Computed example of a mutant assay.
Amino acid sequence: MDEKAAVTRKINIAIDGYSACGKSTLAKDLAKVLSYTFIDSGAMYRAVTLFAMRNGWIKENGVIDQKALIASLNTVQIGFKPSQEKGKSDTHLNGENVEEEIRKPHIAQYVSQISAIPEVRKRLVALQQDFGKEKGVVMDGRDIGTVVFPNAELKLFVTADVEERARRRFEELKSKGVESTLEEVKKNLAHRDHLDTTRATDPLKKADDARLVDNTCMTKDEQLTLVLGWVRSLISN
């Protein structure tokens, strides 16, 4: 593709959407083609969830010791380091590569609850905004266009039918050797959708000026081609 050569100025691209809608795949593909930096904001919240779990602040009954977590947030360092083997960046928590662990179901089970804690969001939003100061960033999450990058030149809201999202996530987990059932995955997605859209702090919603991308019936290439057309239009003006 000629997109790399065509870029005359850098913009920030904010991508929001539901779990398992393919927004991270889109973000990674855009970053690769445009030679931009990809930041997986969801991975940052997953890393904090792992941090809380390792410290015993998430109880078996699902209750979170928010006071203990909040008091230790200043000790949490999250970064992204390129992996030559994988061709993408891995998430590091306090210097440790936790990319594989944060993708497991036991983390997904609690990440929405951790994400709803205002102090956690405040800390991570500040880190995310620092990433975008120099432009040329593609970031995906649930409040990127509404909170993190409200002035992003391109905002996208990605969605897909819940049945299709459950199928995609189930296939992803199966490919990684993670045992689950399609019904369990669908139930988890529905639960996360509810938590993400109803939380009091920075709930998931479409920014007024975001472009809607329903990829239920789209291939990855079709989705990428559509969005690259929008990017080219913006950077050429």
Rank of each mutant, 00 (worst) to 15 (best):
I117R: 08
A116F: 14
P105T: 05
Q66L: 05
S115G: 13
Y45W: 08
E100C: 02
N61W: 14
M53P: 01
R103M: 09
E99Q: 12
G95W: 14
E96S: 07
I102C: 08
L69I: 01
K122N: 03
E60F: 00
K133G: 12
K88D: 12
N97Y: 12
I78P: 03
A47C: 08
I107F: 12
K104H: 12
L93C: 02
T37C: 05
L69M: 01
M44R: 03
A43K: 14
S72R: 15
D130P: 00
F38Q: 09
S41E: 09
S35T: 12
P105Q: 06
T91A: 04
A43Q: 13
Y36W: 09
R123F: 10
L50I: 14
M44D: 01
H92P: 04
K104D: 06
V125Y: 06
K59R: 15
L124N: 06
Q129D: 00
G132H: 11
I114G: 02
P82V: 04
A47W: 10
I114Y: 10
L50R: 14
V111A: 12
E96H: 07
V111K: 08
S89D: 15
G42K: 07
K133A: 05
I64T: 05
G132F: 11
S83Y: 10
G42R: 05
E85A: 12
S83T: 07
P118N: 04
D90R: 10
G79W: 08
A47Y: 13
A126H: 04
T75D: 15
S35P: 06
E100I: 10
H92M: 09
Q113S: 15
I114N: 00
F131N: 09
H92A: 01
I78E: 06
F38Y: 15
S83K: 07
K88N: 11
A68T: 07
V98P: 00
E100Y: 13
I39V: 15
Q109G: 02
Q128Y: 06
F80C: 02
Y110D: 02
K133P: 00
E119A: 07
I64D: 05
L69C: 06
A47M: 11
G87R: 00
F38I: 04
S72G: 03
S35D: 15
M53G: 11
Q128G: 01
L50F: 13
R46S: 06
H106W: 08
N61V: 07
S83Q: 03
F131E: 10
E60C: 04
G132A: 15
E60M: 02
D40Q: 05
Q128W: 09
H106G: 00
R121M: 12
L124R: 00
E100W: 04
F80M: 08
D65K: 03
K122F: 01
A52T: 12
Q128H: 11
I102R: 13
Q109L: 13
F131P: 05
P82S: 06
E60N: 04
L127Y: 07
R46K: 13
L69V: 04
V63K: 14
N74H: 14
G42N: 02
E100R: 11
Q66G: 03
Q77W: 06
L124Q: 00
Q66E: 15
D130T: 01
P82E: 10
I64Q: 05
